[in-house]
Design a binder for these strands. Structure first.
Lengths: 225, 225
DNA sequence: GAACTAATTAACTATCTAGTGAGTTATGTC
DNA sequence: GACATAACTCACTAGATAGTTAATTAGTTC
């Protein structure tokens, strides 16, 4: 990849410059670093290797991000921002409560499968005890909409008398997340232990339907609604 | 810790020697390495630091385990062996199917909570794509008993007509594991995002009961049994 | 008790790695 | 078109890090 790549369409308004482009340089570093950190972890990734895969030099990583930890934190923040943006696209308020739950579960299932690097970064950050994530600004607010959406669905179902009332949006979110995250994050050890590929195409339809069934069976459990 | 620690009770048959003790040296290294790898990860742990926390010298790590990867693999294998031993203690065949499932879920819940270092090693090895775990000898066989136990319970429940038949022991194992592993492994990022402590004492009873409820609601879902 | 070998110690090294010093060039501003 | 400064290049370094060389000592065997 060369730095003057974007000069292909100079007809644009104020089209990309040739030699200097701070935004693009920054983005380029972030993107490469994200792949590299997701691949090797914080301690496993090498600044020199990240720099080499970049269109710029190592000195620029330090210029823009301070140090290795600073770059890693920027990657984390960016990863969560991207995910939040994607998640904000979903709209399930027009569905019946039960169908909304199933849609949410399947969206999460698909989403995690489509973003294994994000799942890896989360696992890496948990190995790191979350010390870098807590420094990210305004993260709880970015997650609030997802919980509120789920809360509205639950409320509608509970009002209609078809969902149990002794559970919360966080409970259900955790249940769905754990299943969908585990499937992607732990597939390697699971395969080694049970010789069963959680992300194999042949198992996908069954596993995808199962999480919706599980959550709905729980929410609609006889004697609880 | 000094090396001559075990000389306290010399009345034993062929009690521990003072200066040379390969087994103890090996054990000592393994134990320290396990803590250190679980704490910092494979790439984050430092051989020098492991050695320093040992009652022996760095050269001994290489003498017994070859290199850093070899030591890490030995730690992984040992960790899985310890867990298997603990799990082999459980006996649920005398319980009713539904109560057996609940007991199994709660045992897993307690077990994972009691062994956070094991959970960390699993996460680390998944970050590493399981390349070191697949080299461990005979691991699938060590996990087979747990699956067979679960399979027997399911079979009994299905024969009695109280459990759905369109699911397998691996499905249920994965469902329980994902919940119990996630709770321990992802507590840091979960806390950072939702300000809710999955391992907090105040949430424990609810979360512990919930996984049993979830699995049983799924297995006994109306229309499926 | 001599010979043998497994276990252990201490000092050493090549390489890697995060981070920096110091200067150069493009670009917007007046 | 001189000036200021943000963006960028290149060469360098101190210290960390995995792994090694080689000699020594404690038990074991006969």
């Amino acid at each position: 990849m060369t730095r003057s790549e974007t000069t292909g369409a100079p007809a644009e308004k104020q089209a990309a410059k040739r030699t200097r482009n701070p935004e693009k340089t920054r983005e380029n570093i972030l993107k490469v670093a994200m792949t590299e950190f997701a691949d090797k972890g914080l301690t496993g990734a090498r600044i020199d290797e990240i720099a080499a895969k970049t269109a710029t030099t190592k000195r620029m990583l330090y210029y823009y991000f301070g140090d290795k930890d600073g770059l890693y934190r920027a990657v984390l923040q960016r990863a969560y921002e991207e995910i939040r943006y994607e998640e904000s696209q979903l709209d399930v308020d027009h569905l019946e409560p039960a169908e909304a739950i199933r849609a949410l579960a399947e969206l999460t299932f698909d989403h995690h499968e489509a973003h294994p690097d994000f799942i890896r970064l989360v696992a890496i950050e948990n190995t790191n005890r979350g010390v870098n994530l807590v420094q990210a600004e305004g993260l709880p607010e970015t997650q609030a909409p997802a919980i509120r959406t789920l809360d509205r669905i639950l409320q509608r179902g509970q009002d209609a008398g078809i969902f149990r009332t002794d559970t919360t949006a966080l409970d259900i979110h955790m249940l769905i997340s754990s299943y969908c995250v585990f499937r992607v994050a732990n597939r390697y050890t699971f395969k080694a232990l049970f010789d069963w590929d959680l992300t194999g195409a042949e198992n996908r339809p069954h596993l995808r339907a199962m999480i919706g069934d599980v959550v709905l069976a729980y929410l609609q459990q006889p004697g609880k609604v």
